[in-house]
Amino acid sequence: MERIPILQMGDFLLVTIQVDMHDQLALTLQDDLSERISRTSARGVLIDISALDMVDSFIGRMIGMISGLSRIMDAETVLVGMQPAVAITLVELGMTLPGVSTALNVERGMKLLRERAYSQ
């Protein structure tokens, strides 16, 4: 079965979404991630969507869910690399992803994760 790979870097999990996702793939990622957070006791999750040229309400909802459930499991989520056209479209769609932390790129995202995870 097709899956989006989850990489582990120390205390953090890194997900880079590069394919045009169908809904089942998004749901699988959500399940895989929560399972990995619990198994590895990860402190943070970084989701890189710089390669995505579209985020619709389904993917937006998935991102919100991942952020919410990782918080319950004591891990921070940072979403990085959203393209301008995607951001404008999401806002127009009515999805503002409240509560989801964001950063411009992977480097900044990791910095933010470290600050958040180790300041508690």
């Binding site: 979403l79 690399g81 959203m82 301008p84 806002v91 127009e92 503002t96 964001t102 411009l104 900044r108």
Partner: peptide, 12 residues
């Protein structure tokens, strides 16, 4: 306002 929100989504 939409621009401010979009900028936040991009991480700035």
């Amino acid at each position: 306002l939409k621009t401010v929100t979009a900028i936040r989504l991009m991480g700035a």
